[in-house]
């Protein structure tokens, strides 16, 4: 396995209990040679969210999407501004409940689970289906 070094975490991201206040003036030494090369720290929001106004977080309950790397209790990044396509993973409301499934448009409108334990949901005439948005990422936490 290769590991890429991505960057340092900034002091601003640490919990308040880590932050120290210097009440006394701090003596200064030679300015850091890195000052001219400072870059803003890695920002997960920027990586995960393209359109903030249209993006919502949804928590997964259940393991029906396990094979799409979406575990129980994962957090989904849902972008409502992306038009869902055949094969997109979506959050949809089906008869008043939110579900996360893979969208199948052809040959027949269907919501596919990604776990053989579950059956595909074929949308029957008269069933109320609204696609809330497209899932662009899932965050699974291990610890």
């Amino acid at each position: 396995m290769t590991v890429n070094y991505l960057g340092l975490i900034s002091a601003n991201d640490l919990p308040a209990s880590f932050t120290k206040f210097f009440v006394e003036p701090v003596s200064v030494g030679f300015p850091s040679p890195a000052n001219d090369y400072l870059e803003s720290p890695i920002d997960l929001n920027k990586y995960l969210i393209k359109n903030g106004a249209a993006t919502f977080l949804v928590r997964v309950s259940g393991d029906s999407m396990l094979n799409a790397n979406i575990a129980d209790q994962a957090i989904l990044i849902v972008d409502r501004s992306l038009k869902p396509k055949h094969g997109s993973i979506v959050v949809a409301s089906l008869d008043g409940d939110f579900v996360c499934k893979r969208l199948q448009l052809k040959p027949r409108l269907c919501l596919l689970p990604e776990n053989p334990k579950y059956e595909p949901i074929y949308i029957q005439h008269g069933q109320d289906l609204d696609i809330m948005g497209t899932v662009t990422a899932a965050i699974n936490k291990f610890e």
């Binding site: 309950s61 259940g62 939110f98 996360c100």
Partner: peptide, 12 residues
């Protein structure tokens, strides 16, 4: 739903 990690909407 949109401002608290513990109150996010949940899928069934």
């Amino acid at each position: 739903y949109t401002t608290n990690w513990w109150e996010l909407p949940t899928t069934k």
